[in-house]
Nucleic acid binder design. Structure first.
Lengths: 232, 232
DNA sequence: CGGGGTCTTGACCCTCCTCAAGGAAAGTGG
DNA sequence: CCACTTTCCTTGAGGAGGGTCAAGACCCCG
């Protein structure tokens, strides 16, 4: 794999503090690949052969059961996914597909486990990352069980707004059908939910969202750090 | 804390392989406490001062938002809970209350983090445990998003049956109102769901469940290892 | 034998899904 | 650059799943 990618990968929390030769050992076995959109990288149930790192583009993590499908998360650069399966050497619980043209690094799971065994700093970073992932899923479960779809959408918009540095107007980063699935509803219902948020000063046109009445929306959404803070 | 509890705690995957003096250091700072039923041990949002270990009784992990409440999990002996918050030194995401008279060990979070830093075997065990927790929550999210309430109940019963070594008749281990909340529905709706499973040979009387037609129920429930296997 | 909780049942209603069709974008090939 | 195709988004009508409210049955425990 080309060394030009090393710095940006090294920057990741996961690899930051680890010993240089261990990092190089990981990179030695890794390789980069470019994928077109809509390619299935991973099929849930498969053995977890690689830790994946998204360098560019974006990846959808989704799951299926009984001919139904739901979107679980979207992975954006630069970050890793399916760390837990790699560590436990257990089958993937989610499938993954590219949403756009994407550049992905594949690090053999064995290598990750091997370095994990000998590098305490790396081990520590993995723990932090896993704890983070765990807490994220717990939050998303709370979101699903405690809120109606309208409330979930409202809070989602507030989170996206925070990402956009609090701007009153910002773009949706994923297409609506996928957003609907992520929020646990149908595309039709998402359309109606957007309309339902008119009452709280939310205007949507295409991918453009404008929040004209911040206070109203927040009073309706009641965002909570214990559900909506993705950082802690 | 009385040494008599050491062996059973030491048996836990989390503490199995670690160095003896590290284990003793953890136990030195820990203390056991007996709680009556319905005591709130933890309030979500609080700083995570202790890693908890249930020795006997049972504990409900639940969350609230906007005057709504939902049950997230039930912890039974012998196991730990809220490891992620302890490790990340972040606020608890879930509240905890005893369901019955319970004996709980409290290990100061600082101690856990300190030993984690110096004992690689312990670190490894924590990683495994966290990965396990993460995968459990992912499974439960899939359960929630991909299945109807009737399907969730059917699969829950099959899982409980497995716990009871596959017996055709077994007892529900938690009260129905809590089960309902855990499965993401109301008590009323759970009652109706039990009736709805009559058609697949499920008989319920009080806490007794009898599965008279295993094949029918399984064909309806379509259990999947990627959602219902709590071990992987 | 009360009295508190839980569980069940019924009636009603609201949320959300399904199905179907029309419209808006966006990519494709001439 | 323009028709064509495809995909996505929206809108409407109808219906199923699940929530709410209220009342009664059951059950456990003092």
């Amino acid at each position: 794999m080309p060394k030009s990618h090393f710095p940006e990968i090294r920057e990741l929390d996961l690899f930051q503090g680890m010993q240089e030769d261990h990092f190089l050992a990981l990179m030695r076995g890794a390789y980069v690949q470019n994928f077109p959109p809509q390619i299935e990288l991973i099929n849930e149930g498969d053995p977890s052969d690689f830790l994946h790192i998204v360098l560019s583009g974006s990846v959808d993590l989704f799951s299926t059961w009984n001919r139904r499908e739901t979107s679980m998360a979207t992975v954006r650069p630069i970050s890793t996914f399916i760390l837990a399966a790699t560590i436990k050497d257990a089958p993937y619980l989610m499938s993954a597909r590219t949403l756009e043209k994407s550049r992905i690094v594949l690090v053999p799971s064995e290598d990750v486990r091997a370095v994990f065994d000998i590098d305490p700093v790396f081990a520590q970073a993995i723990v932090t990352e896993l704890a983070q992932c765990y807490r994220s899923v717990v939050k998303s479960t709370k979101d699903l069980k405690l809120r109606t779809s309208l409330e979930r959408l409202a809070n989602y918009l507030l989170r996206q707004q925070t990402r956009a540095d609090g701007a009153a107007e910002f773009d949706l980063l994923i297409e609506k059908r996928r957003l609907a699935s992520f929020l646990g509803m149908t595309p039709e219902n998402l359309s109606r939910a957007f309309k339902g948020l008119h009452a709280y000063g939310v205007m949507v046109e295409g991918i453009k969202v404008r929040i004209s009445n911040q206070r109203d929306l927040e009073r309706f959404a009641k965002p909570s750090p214990l559900i909506d803070d993705y950082s802690t």
